[in-house]
């Protein structure tokens, strides 16, 4: 004989669950529907929502190349990652390149190069560099083309092995003379400074590029703090004590509570509790 408890309790449970689900659905239905711009979704890393928004825009206006670019960048990051999405993004950007004009073509070319560089599996760094070079040749003053030069520089330094690291480094320094966009110039110098240290191309080269990046101006506090210490370390290694101390004082003035301040104070021989003043 079965006890009545499970059966009755089950019915009560089911009834309660039904009421709860009904309540929840009613509440959801009464909520306002959010209809954000596709680009805002991309900025907020909401790629699935962005994809829907751009698909809708393209359906409404098939000539909307901005939506085509938006859909492509959303597809690059919709999870789970699928090669079909990457290939579709590539095709969308090729459409913009062949049919669009001005800024849109520049952007599509840059993104195509990035797909070959990073998103496609396997990546094709040679194709990426070819597209970056093509973009720079066509639009030497455009910020995105100049940023493409920085991306290509990374590939040349770390991936392609076209020449010895020292020769590649020297060539890149020569070619970078044209960089006019501050962001691209800053990131080029930061890239070169890191490569000089990692590829053992000398403290002087690293310091030169760190100072150049500093002169352009850094966007992030953390980068600035790291740069001051890196420049001071390289300057000390080269015997440029005055320069090293200037960077160390700047660090202490701007980052007195950083966990590395104690070490810097030790280097400077500064009092332990009072940050030293920075030199102008």
């Amino acid at each position: 004989m079965h006890a009545p408890f499970p059966c009755i309790a089950g019915r009560i449970l089911a009834a309660a669950a039904g009421v709860a689900i009904g309540w929840t659905q009613a509440a959801r239905a009464s909520e306002p529907v959010d209809a954000p711009d596709g680009w805002e979704n991309v900025a907020q890393v909401q790629f699935l929502d962005a994809r829907r928004a751009f698909e809708a825009r393209l359906q409404a206006d098939p000539a909307d190349h901005d939506a085509r670019i938006g859909l492509a960048v959303a597809l690059l990051n919709v999870q789970p990652r699928q090669s079909a999405n990457i290939e579709r993004a590539l095709a969308l950007l090729e459409e913009v390149r062949s049919d669009g004009r001005g800024e849109q073509v520049i952007e599509a070319t840059y993104l195509l190069a990035r797909i070959h560089q990073l998103h496609r599996d396997p990546a094709d760094p040679y194709k990426a560099v070819e597209l970056f070079d093509e973009l720079l040749a066509a639009h030497p003053d455009h910020p995105l083309a100049q940023m493409g030069f920085v991306e290509a520089a990374m590939l040349r330094l770390y991936v392609l092995d076209e020449a010895s690291p020292a020769a590649t480094f020297a060539t890149l320094e020569q070619r970078a003379a044209h960089l006019s966009d501050p962001t691209a110039r800053r990131d080029f110098h930061l890239t070169m400074a890191a490569a000089a240290s990692r590829l053992r191309l000398g403290d002087a080269a690293a310091l030169r590029h760190l100072r150049a990046a500093d002169a352009v101006g850094l966007a992030k506090r953390n980068t600035a703090g790291n740069l001051y210490i890196r420049a001071a370390t390289r300057a000390r290694a080269l015997g440029q004590v005055d320069l090293a101390e200037a960077y160390e004082r700047r660090f202490l003035a701007e980052f007195p509570r950083d966990f590395r301040a104690y070490t810097i104070r030790q280097r400077l021989g500064a009092p332990a509790t009072q940050p030293a003043e920075a030199t102008p």
Binding site: M154, T183, R186, D187, L190, L218, A219
Partner: peptide, 16 residues
């Protein structure tokens, strides 16, 4: 500008 700075630093780390 800050976004570029972050991305490029991470990308250099990646290749290295």
């Amino acid at each position: 500008s800050a976004g570029w700075e972050t991305q490029n630093a991470q990308e250099a780390d990646l290749y290295w």
